[in-house]
Design a protein around this nucleic acid. Structure first.
Length: 947
RNA sequence: GCUGGAGUGGCGGAAUUGGUAUACGCGCGCGACUCAAAAUCGCGUUCCGCAAGGAUUGAGGGUUCAAGUCCCUCCUCCAGCACCA
């Protein structure tokens, strides 16, 4: 029966008791219990809790409560990330002090968080704007400065005209606008405070591997860091300068037919006298550097550039004189800012070369890439009789490579027995291509040097297996005139890769596409393969050639990264002041620890003008002079708020430590964070920055771990009822306070947990009707005591223990939705069959993590003194999990025909007998049973003989 | 274009990881209670069909006694990156 309950009264009552008794405080580490550090991203105190906060915190609370009941000591802290622009903007708008605004918001939001009824460890809270917090943000900065991790350097920065400050790359959206204000971001070159995150690029990639994180987050971090391995190759110019280019394809050096410099490259200014067309060159360079990202994107395909007249370079591989260009498709900030252009094997170079009529020289025959595995025989040896056929399209002059080996049927016939009298093996292969693929007029025009075939085999470390290998170039005479149909393509494919299982081993799908493209389209062959037109390297594969050619020309193998150093200076007021002062010579010095926290001055008009507000403070100026002496000046920038959140999880552990940001002892007790729940918007920013901080602190001997987060779970978004992202302008915002007051905190929490699986990054629309279902469920739970019976029903006990088992397992996998479903199934059944006192108590415990207020109320109503949240989680008893009977599926000839109930663990013979003697199935088993597949307690499949 | 992920009723979603597809909830339909409505309770609800029965997990193919789950081809959607050499 439904029974209405007064959620407001119940919630108020228990929240007060919980707060007073402090039952959710963790206190000191209790070594008798297993620890678990559960972290959620600390919120920005914008003033009001929104539904996203509920989704982020209330659902995770289920996990925390269940684990506490299971005996773990769970740290579940909450705090506030309270510096940042919204406070400053609100303060400007309302003419308030940002600190006062922030602090009153924190008070209000903490109240709202308490109304959520979460089991937060409030004894461990902190806030980034507390003096005792930012003192340590500053102290960490000074340590970073001493280790040259923090430095001042010239950098191209993103300037947001709306926010009047520099913002990080990560805060610029893909359309070139600011993620906060939406204004188009300018590029400016400025002296900036930066953190040397690039020094950690390799570790940030490599250390991802062992982490228990979803692959997509690891992938986006890898992409963000963007490591590419290649080589730096020195080119000597006619001016005598030696310039290095960065390339990922040193194997294509013989095909490099010109050089391209970034328009901003300093060689250009340096060589003013030697550039004959200086006027036009400098004009182009200036135009290019003024183009912002959007303009560059718009002209994506259309290549522009200008030749440096009077300057040439020498290709170090073959000594050829090649021209030098500048073009805006080469970026100053990546690699060395210079490329060697290989139009035959790079699409951008190809586009440029076509436009400027530059020579295009193919040096690689595309083939399988480096994941390519040669076919093996049954003994794991590389198979013999490899045949390599290079096909050349006569009209385009392009090459493609096919290769076969003995086990492929079409060729096997030709080689092993199908070679007709007087026919060579090559001719047999050509016949096959002609006949099977329908590509006419193919003829051998050139036998490749034997070395090509030999190298091919040698590269697979099987030299003595090459006895029968051969290679040649066959020409497809009129391929372009032939109508190439998909039938041709199919035929060629089937010729090449007869056995499907071989396809994987022999050639990658990429290669298949590549070969075909080479033959009949104008696409550029970018895949690695085997070299040609490369003197002594002919026939070598790309991977080996990369090293060999780099070595020959005196280059060196090198990695390059997309990641840039993190610029952290902000020309705004409401942030942590960078703890630096300048001596009269302008040299920066850290502010000694005794003067930390280095506070924000209060005499500042912080309206954004583009100039840092702190520069206008006489209070700050005087403070510096009185401490450091005349002529000393303060740093006037504040830090990006991502700095604050890069180490907050350390501070929770030891929030009131006045000697250290976080003691090693406390860290050893709690780190690493066992699980970090958060949103995907932090995948490449906060998550990367805080990993970087942890590594630097580790290297400084200040952190116990070098990776902070063992496991990460990303949740999705709660969308508006219309399926769109909630926004004021769309009028589809759900206010959690309103929902809580209407239906109760437990209902809202359970609804959010029930919408779908947590941590799959899926977005769920808020369903006004859906939430009512959860309220109904809780009302039925409230009325469940009316179904208490004297006797203990075995049926209920069985179901209960199955439910315990299911819920316990589901919570471990963050499948709160199916756990709730199990609770519903239980209630549905018990309302019909009744429940004993003891089982009722157990049910309440199962309900406790999901509905903390209501379960506490019901728990006390049956006379319990302590809190249900400090009781022990029930354990499913094996004996109740065993069934007496099993209803198993019945298949006849693999088709589902129904089900039959038999004894639990019944053997095959008895089930077959039961079937053949049943009215329902005997008729269907109309002939001899040929075979029986029996899966105990699941299914039986009767295969009848054909007659 | 590259990388990663996902496609199951009217909707949110379930399926012990190869073994009875559509649990649970919403919605909807019918009935009960009511002067009536709401709330509540009962029954039904993947689709076609009166039924027997048949079809069905984005499309097509394959492996298997058995496929939502594994393999191949294709389509669609979401997320990240994108003139990165």
């Amino acid at each position: 029966m439904h029974k209405k309950f007064e959620h407001k009264e119940i919630e108020k009552k228990w929240q007060k008791i919980w707060k007073e008794s402090g039952i959710y405080n963790v206190g000191t580490r209790d070594l008798s219990r297993e620890k678990e550090y559960v972290l959620v991203e600390w919120p920005y105190p914008s003033g009001n809790l929104h539904i996203g906060h509920w989704f982020a915190f209330a659902v995770v609370d289920i996990y925390v409560r269940a684990h506490r009941m299971q005996g773990k000591q769970v740290l579940f802290p909450m705090g506030f990330d309270a510096f940042g622009l919204p406070a400053e903007n609100a303060a400007i708008k309302r003419n308030l002090d940002p600190r006062a605004w922030t602090e009153s918001n924190i008070v209000h939001m903490r109240e709202q968080l308490e109304q959520m009824g979460n089991a937060f460890s409030w004894d461990k809270t902190t806030s980034s704007t507390d003096e005792e917090y930012f003192e340590w943000t500053q102290w960490i900065f000074t340590r970073f400065f001493e280790k040259d991790i923090a430095f001042r350097g010239e950098a191209t920065v993103n300037w947001c005209p709306g926010c009047n400050t520099v913002i990080a790359n990560e805060q610029v959206l893909s359309d070139g606008t600011c993620e906060r204000s939406g204004d188009v971001v300018d590029k400016r070159s400025m002296m900036q405070w930066m953190l040397k995150i690039t020094d950690y690029a390799d570790r940030l990639i490599n250390d991802l591997e062992p982490l228990d994180w979803p692959d997509h987050i690891k992938e986006s971090q890898k992409q963000w860091i963007g490591r590419s391995s290649g080589a730096e190759i020195p080119f000597t110019l006619s001016t005598g300068d030696v310039l290095s280019v960065f390339t990922t394809r040193p194997d294509t050096l013989y095909g490099a037919t010109y050089l391209v410099l970034a328009p901003e490259h300093d060689f250009i200014i340096r060589s003013k006298n030697k550039i004959q067309n200086w006027e036009s060159v400098i004009r182009y360079s200036q135009e290019a550097s003024q183009k912002d990202d959007i303009a560059r994107l718009k002209s994506e395909k259309e290549k522009t550039g200008i030749k440096l007249e009077g300057i040439t370079a020498t290709n170090p591989a073959n000594g050829e004189e090649i021209p030098v260009f500048i073009a805006d498709y080469v970026l100053k900030g990546y690699g060395t800012g210079i490329i060697m252009a290989v139009p035959a094997h790079d699409e951008r170079d190809y586009a440029f070369a076509t436009k400027f009529n530059l020579p295009i020289k193919q040096v690689v025959v595309p083939c399988a890439n480096d994941s390519h595995n040669p076919p093996k025989n049954d003994y794991g040896e590389v198979k013999r009789d490899t045949i390599i056929v290079h096909l050349r399209n006569k009209s385009t002059g392009k090459f493609a490579l096919l290769n076969w080996h003995e086990s492929l049927e079409g060729i096997t016939t030709a080689i092993m027995g199908g070679i007709e009298q007087g026919q060579t093996a090559e001719e047999a292969v050509i016949n096959e291509i002609n006949e099977e693929a329908g590509l006419k007029n193919i003829k051998i025009i050139h036998r490749l040097p034997w070395v090509t075939a030999a190298r091919y085999c040698a590269s697979h470390k099987n030299e003595n297996r090459c006895a029968h290998s051969f290679a040649f170039i066959a020409e497809v005479e009129n391929l372009n005139n032939q109508e190439i149909t998909s039938q041709h393509e199919q035929n060629l494919h089937s010729l090449m890769w007869v056995e499907e299982s071989e396809v994987l081993d022999l050639l990658t799908p990429d290669h298949q596409k590549q070969v075909w493209k080479m033959l009949h389209s104008n696409e550029v062959a970018t895949a690695p393969g085997y070299l040609m037109n490369s003197e002594e390297f002919d026939g070598m594969n790309s991977e080996e050639a990369k090293v060999a050619i780099t070595e020959k020309v005196g280059g060196k193998m090198k990695n390059t990264y997309r990641l840039r150093d993190w610029s952290i200076g902000r020309q705004r007021y409401w942030g942590v002041p960078i703890p630096i002062v300048y001596d009269p010579e302008g040299k920066p010095h850290v502010i000694p620890k005794e003067y930390l926290p280095w506070k924000l001055p209060t005499d500042v008009d912080f309206k954004p003008t583009g100039e840092a507000p702190l520069a206008k403070s006489s209070e700050l100026k005087e403070r510096v002079e009185s401490i450091f002496g005349k002529g000393w000046t303060p740093e006037v920038e504040t830090m990006d708020t991502f700095v604050d959140s890069s180490w907050y999880f350390f501070r929770y552990l030891d929030a009131h430590n006045t000697d250290l940001f976080s003691s090693k002892e406390k860290q050893n007790e709690w780190m690493p964070i066992d699980i970090y729940f958060g949103g995907s918007e932090h995948n490449t920013m906060h998550l990367l920055y805080s990993r970087f901080f942890t590594k630097v602190l580790y290297d400084l001997g200040l952190s116990a771990v070098d990776e902070p987060y063992k496991k990460r779970i990303n949740r999705g978004l709660v969308l508006g009822p219309d399926g769109n992202k909630m926004s004021k302008s769309k009028g589809n915002v759900i206010d959690p306070d309103e929902q809580v007051s209407r239906l109760g905190a437990d209902t809202v929490k359970m609804y959010l947990a029930f919408m779908g699986p947590y941590g799959e990054m899926a977005d769920y629309p808020w369903d006004m009707g859906g939430i009512v279902g959860l309220r109904r469920f809780l009302e039925r739970a409230y009325g469940l005591s009316e179904h208490i019976t004297e006797s203990n029903s075995l049926e209920t006990a069985r179901l209960l223990h199955k439910t315990i088992d299911k819920i316990t397992r589901d919570i471990e996998q963050y499948k709160f939705n199916t756990a709730i479903s199990a609770l519903m199934i239980f209630i549905n059944a018990v309302e019909k069959i009744g429940i004993s006192n003891n089982d009722y108590t157990i049910f309440l415990k199962l309900l406790a993590p999901f509905a903390p207020h209501l379960s506490e109320e019901l728990w006390s109503a049956i006379g319990n003194k302590g809190s249900i949240h400090q009781s022990q989680w029930p354990v499913a008893e094996e004996k109740f999990l065993l069934e007496e009977t099993a209803t198993i599926g019945v298949q006849i000839n693999g088709k589902m025909r129904g089900s039959i109930t038999v004894a639990y663990d019944a053997d095959e013979a008895s089930v077959v007998t039961a079937l053949t003697s049943s009215d329902e199935y005997s008729a269907k088993i109309h002939s001899e049973i040929a075979r029986v597949i029996y899966i105990k307690n699941k299914l039986i499949n009767i295969i009848l003989s054909k007659t």
